[in-house]
Amino acid sequence: MTAVGLVAAPFLLMFVSLFIGRYPLSMGEVLSVLGTKAGLPGPSPLTIHMNVVWDIRLPRAILGALVGGSLAVSGAAFQGLFRNPLVSSGVLGVSAGAGFGASLAIILFGSDTFYVYVFAFCFGILAVVLSYVIGTNYTSTPTIMLVLGGVVVSSIFSSLVSLLKYIADPYEQLPSIVFWLMGSMASARFKDIAISAIPMGVGMAGLVAMRWRLNILSMDDREAQALGVNVIFVKGLAILFATLATAGAVCVSGVIGWVGLVVPHMGRMLVGNDNTVLVPTSLSIGAGYLIIVDNVARTLTGSEIPLGILTSIIGAPFFVYLLKKTKGRGW
């Protein structure tokens, strides 16, 4: 029952978001677009209606689900991996690295989305690789070393972003950089989804598949090893999947905070800490949550509100409610 709800909820929200937006469309008009796309007979809708529903609202909803799910799942995985409920999907520097990559691309090539994606993705991955190399000690990867590696790499890339902002053209490039860093899915098209869905899909699927191993990785390294898990290999694999998911998300949506940190906690309060349940739950909550937030972002005012601003403003009251209601559940 719960499982069905978890799978169904994001799809339901995706469907609902087709009816929401600032361009006035009646329910009938939206359904008529869907009917035509499904090949049903009937009067064909206006092209503008087709564009709004099929080329704007739908890809944004799909992208929202993918990005929200990716950030939440990798956040949950990293929290387990680092035995620390305060880390998020950006702990190894992927967001900071991607932010630098995107800023660099904006300065070098203007706001051409293709270069921004590629640079953001590659620098996101590079940041994690650097953190991993810094955090590797002889033949082990102690948690605290990895976290410190992430801190160092993140701060380097943040400084570099500041440097780029400082030298950027204040009328064209600077606003683009600032807007990108606040996160948005305004540019979402099917073409973008097709590219970024691969790393996000692989990352999420990998983490969901290995979710029981995340429980064991949350034990002390020695204990995990004695339980029969090849810690270096399995930890590395989890980091790889989480990084693919996050880098894929960040490169199309910009830096969206909160989801990768707090959504897993919503999951912990609802279903407990066992990753076999928590990981899929986080995926579902993250996906649904970002769809909702994106709907608010594109309807609340005439111009888009950046997602990074809304994720916490909308989520905080709900989180506080959960915190009080469940009394933190065993913490």
Binding site: R83, N84, N215, S218, D220, E223, N273, D274, R329
Partner: peptide
């Protein structure tokens, strides 16, 4: 001594 990272059952 076992460190308890999360309130697992």
């Amino acid at each position: 001594v076992h460190e308890k990272p999360f309130p697992y059952k």
